[in-house]
Write a protein that binds this DNA or RNA. Structure first.
Lengths: 136, 136
DNA sequence: TTATTACCCTATCGATTTAATAGAGTAAGC
DNA sequence: GCTTACTCTATTAAATCGATAGGGTAATAA
């Protein structure tokens, strides 16, 4: 299940990508336009800024803006920042690998085998999509 | 994230599929072999039986067994029973569709557009795998 | 310099889900 | 008729999620 955090983050990023210039957009404007709790959105934009996807400007006329061009922001990056691991189990994760404490042998584990395929196919989708592809 | 319930369920089904005959296997044997809490496994096998994937036999020499051949059990069925919706958001789910209460227009929703692709690629994996494919 | 604006941070909260456990009940077989 | 093993209900602790509240701080315009 996709978390609201990711859902809202994607919507906010898409909204920023759809702006004409790269002038700062206020949180309140994004929240209103996308039907998102403003306070919740604040924390999401904050993490996006800390990860280097967004820049912010304080004071009058301030707000958030994209640092890079939408076409240079792959969905793999966005999803990992917002949702975390792309894999459904840690033992097939590229960036968040962890061994299962049960399961003595990964190579012969049926769950491992299946989830590896799911991870690969999902990854391909995210690799083939940039933020630019999400803008209507 | 894959739930333990699904993980254990898949392992149990694979274990049953790997049996030579279709004679009942005790819960305790499955639990021991796959490192699963027996009581937790009980409830999982129960739902699998209620869904028609497994049969059970009581009394001495009883246990659980597969009703159909492993090659006739597609992963789509198993995953929907154990994990629920395959889609990451209800608005792109085939079997569990629900409209988003935010989001005025699905067609122009960036999240919808992306998650539709993910659902399709994941679905393809599950459609191409039966229980027989998971047996080592 | 001063007032305003808007970002930034911490803490809290209720609701929900998850994973596991306990204990009693019931049906089948020897 | 007694054992075995499945069946069901209830409870629990822990974790996570989504949201809210409230104040602090820095940058900008005037």
């Amino acid at each position: 299940m996709l978390s609201k955090k990711t859902k809202y983050g994607l919507k906010a990023l898409t909204f920023l990508a759809a702006q004409k210039g790269r002038t700062p957009v206020q949180i309140s404007e994004i929240a209103k336009h996308e039907n998102i709790s403003q306070k919740f959105l604040e924390s999401i934009l904050l993490t996006l800024r800390k990860t280097g996807l967004l820049g912010s400007k304080k004071g009058k006329g301030g707000g958030y803006y994209l640092i890079k061009e939408p076409k240079d922001i792959p969905m793999t990056t966005v999803m990992r920042v917002l949702e975390g691991p792309i894999a459904m189990v840690p033992c097939v994760s590229l960036n968040f690998y962890e061994k299962c404490e049960d399961c003595p042998d990964e190579a012969s584990c049926s769950v491992h085998k299946l989830m590896l395929q799911v991870r690969d196919s999902t990854l391909e989708v995210f690799r083939n999509n940039t933020l630019a592809d999400l803008v209507p």
